[in-house]
C-alpha cells in the first residue's frame, strides 16, 4: 500500500469512463448537475454529444437512462449516492432493475466521509437499498486502480450495476499489480489466522494499516477487500470463518443492510460464526472533516486494532 499516492475513486471513475467512451460508441453518460464532483465531466469534455446533464432531477435521470438503455445504449448515470439511491429508488427499481436494463449507476459521495456537508448528504443506506433489488450487482471499490478495473468489469455486465464511491482520497493499494478483478470475488491480503477483517471502500486501507500494526505485536490477521457486495463471495467468507478465530466487518455505511449484513446472512445459513459489525450504528452522520468523522464513528485503524485486541 502506498500512503503517499492518494486519489479519490470518483476521479478514477471519470478517467475510466472517458477511456471506455473511446472504445465504445454506445456508452452515454448522464449526470444531475454534479458532473464536476462525480467526475463525469472528464467524459463530458471528450464526448459532449454523448453526455447529458439532466439538471437537478435524479428521478428523471434514472428513467431517462432506462429509456436510453432500452434502445441499446450503455447508460452511466451519476450523482451523489444520497440522491441516486434515495431519491430515485423507485425509478431504479421499476424502470431499471425490473426490466433488467443496462444502466450503470455510479454514485459518488457515499458515507460519512462526505464530511462537512453533514447528515443530509452522507448516504449510509445505499448498499442496503441496492442490494435488495433483484437483477442488481453492487460494488464498492477501495482505490484508484481497482476502480478502473471495476468500471471495465461492469461495462461487460449485461444489466444494472451499482458502483459506490466516496469523496475522500484513498491510498493506492493495487498500484503496480497485474489486473485481477473479478466481480463477486473478494481479495484476500495475508494468511493470518487470528482474525479476518472484511472491509470495503475507504475502510480497506484502514484495515490494511491495522494488519501491519498488529503484525508488530505478533498478531496475524488477514484483510479481505470485499469490492463486491452483491453477489457476495460466499466461498471466501466461509473459508475465513473456518480458518480464523475472529470475524470483523467494517464499512463506511450503516451496519444495517450493507457489507456486515451481507456477510452475516451467509454465516447464519452456511457457517454459524460470531461476526462483529463495525460501521455506522443506526444513526445519522454529522458535519466535520472526513478524517475526524472516521475517528468519531470508529472506522479507523486504531479502532480495528482495539477490536481485535479486545480492549
Amino acid at each position: 500500500m502506498n500512503l503517499e499516492n492518494k486519489k479519490a475513486t470518483r476521479e478514477s471513475y471519470g478517467e475510466a469512463l472517458a477511456q471506455l467512451g473511446k472504445e465504445n460508441k454506445d456508452i452515454v453518460v448522464l449526470d444531475a448537475d454534479l458532473s464536476a464532483a462525480t467526475k463525469t465531466s472528464i467524459f463530458a469534455k471528450e464526448f459532449p454529444e454523448r453526455f447529458f446533464n439532466m439538471g437537478i432531477a435524479e428521478q428523471d435521470m434514472m428513467s431517462t437512462a432506462a429509456g436510453l438503455a432500452s434502445c441499446g445504449k450503455i447508460a452511466y448515470a451519476s450523482t451523489f449516492a444520497m440522491f441516486a439511491t434515495g431519491r430515485a429508488y423507485d425509478q431504479i427499481r421499476n424502470n431499471i432493475c425490473y426490466p433488467k436494463l443496462n444502466v450503470k449507476i455510479c454514485a459518488s459521495h457515499a458515507g460519512i466521509t462526505v464530511g462537512e456537508d453533514g447528515a443530509t448528504h452522507q448516504m449510509l443506506e445505499d448498499l442496503g437499498l441496492m442490494r435488495g433489488l433483484p437483477n442488481m450487482t453492487v460494488l464498492c471499490t477501495s482505490d484508484d486502480i481497482q476502480t478502473k478495473w471495476a468500471v471495465e468489469a461492469i461495462n461487460k455486465v449485461e444489466g444494472p450495476t451499482y458502483l459506490r464511491f466516496c469523496r475522500l482520497s484513498t491510498p493506492s493499494i493495487y498500484d503496480g499489480e497485474i489486473p485481477k478483478f473479478e466481480i463477486g470475488k473478494g481479495v484476500q491480503f495475508g494468511e493470518g489466522t487470528d482474525a479476518t477483517v472484511f472491509a470495503t471502500g475507504v475502510t480497506v486501507s484502514e484495515a490494511l494499516l491495522a494488519k501491519e500494526e498488529l503484525e508488530k505485536q505478533g498478531i496475524n490477521i488477514r484483510v479481505v477487500d470485499m469490492h463486491t457486495i452483491k453477489p457476495i463471495d460466499e466461498e471466501l467468507i466461509i473459508k475465513c470463518a473456518k480458518e480464523t478465530k475472529k470475524l470483523i466487518s467494517i464499512e463506511d455505511h450503516s451496519i444495517i443492510g450493507g457489507l456486515g449484513t451481507a456477510i452475516a446472512e451467509v454465516l447464519t445459513e452456511k457457517c454459524p460464526t460470531k461476526l462483529t459489525r463495525m460501521g455506522i450504528k443506526d444513526e445519522f452522520g454529522k458535519s466535520g472533516p472526513a478524517k475526524e468523522l472516521l475517528k468519531y464513528f470508529g472506522l479507523t485503524k486504531d479502532e480495528i486494532v482495539k477490536e481485535i485486541l479486545d480492549v
Binding site: S63, T64, G67, L68, A69, A75, Q91
Partner: peptide, 12 residues
C-alpha cells in the same frame, strides 16, 4: 416515469 423513459428513447 414513462415520459422520462420516452425522452431517453427519443435521445437515443
Amino acid at each position: 416515469q414513462g415520459l422520462s423513459a420516452a425522452n431517453g428513447m427519443a435521445i437515443a
